[in-house]
């Protein structure tokens, strides 16, 4: 492989990542700018971060967003894991094609359509729109991402381990909690983190699903962005980027350790057998 790695490859990677990261870096750097002008550097300052702490409306929105994220990510991970098991382990059953269609369609479906259709459902059902309707809307689209993440892991691992457990008399539920879940745990954690960040970021679907009283952080940011670029938005964005980066690094670390451990155990098992 390495001898094929030419200057051309290195250049395209370098330019590609510069394109991906320079906008984010500029945004982060200028959140520490002294001046109110977002594009002219005037020295380091953290004053925009302290300004955030005094903005009660923003803090309220952040709190709503975090609560929605925690509840929806948890429910969506449970439903997504069940959906992944259905897709990978359940074989054929009536309505399977429709089911896999409903899992994959939301991944590409324009958000305005999902948002509008959910809102009309909530109105038809007579729900009070607010925290719970946003949460239900988020569960709906994030569970599909969760299902895809867990599904990839379920497909990878050797089914015979599960079969062995059941041959030895474990019930399906025992098998799931003692054999399957520990193996797919890293993907379940990733699914939770992905659902949480997707929920944290969502603007369009939340805007449709919400009612008076529940404003999420992206909705707040959006209404301010429309008025122009301000260093406060840079500061809040930087905090969000920081949270997501830490979350993702954590997920990568968990996955890496898990794979290393299972690799070690496998080698040990083979060593003992040989």
């Amino acid at each position: 492989m390495n001898k094929n790695f030419s200057w051309f490859n290195l250049t395209s990677i370098t330019f590609g990542f510069a394109f991906l990261y320079i906008p984010i870096l500029l945004l982060v750097i200028f959140s520490f700018n002294e001046s109110k002008l977002v594009t002219v550097w005037a020295g380091w300052s953290t004053k925009w971060y302290s300004a955030l702490l005094e903005n009660q409306a923003l803090k309220d929105a952040a709190w709503v967003t975090i609560r929605v994220g925690l509840v929806s990510a948890t429910v969506s991970t449970v439903l997504g894991t069940l959906a992944a098991i259905t897709l990978v382990r359940m074989g054929r059953f009536p309505g399977r094609t429709l089911f896999s269609g409903m899992i994959f369609a939301p991944l590409v479906m324009p958000e305005v359509i999902i948002g509008l259709s959910l809102l009309l459902l909530f109105v038809a059902m007579g729900f009070d729109r607010g925290f719970w309707t946003i949460t239900m809307a988020h569960i709906t689209f994030t569970m599909c991402y969760a299902a895809v993440v867990v599904q990839a892991r379920l497909q990878d691992f050797d089914k015979s381990v599960e079969e062995a457990a059941m041959d030895l008399g474990a019930t399906p539920i025992n098998t799931f909690f003692q054999v399957t879940l520990p193996i797919i745990a890293p993907s379940v954690i990733s699914a939770w983190l992905l659902s949480f960040t997707l929920s944290l970021d969502d603007l369009v679907i939340s805007s449709f699903a919400t009612g008076p009283g529940a404003t999420t952080l992206p909705m707040k940011i959006y209404s301010q962005v429309r008025l122009g670029v301000t260093p406060e938005i840079n500061a809040i964005s930087t905090i969000l980027i920081g949270i997501v980066t830490i979350g993702l690094l954590l997920a990568a670390y968990v996955t890496k350790r898990q794979t290393e451990r299972s690799e070690r155990e496998r080698r040990k098992a083979f060593g003992a057998a040989g």
Partner: peptide, 9 residues
């Protein structure tokens, strides 16, 4: 994984 809105902003 980073917010869509923020990256457009």
């Amino acid at each position: 994984w980073t917010s869509f809105l923020i990256r457009i902003y």
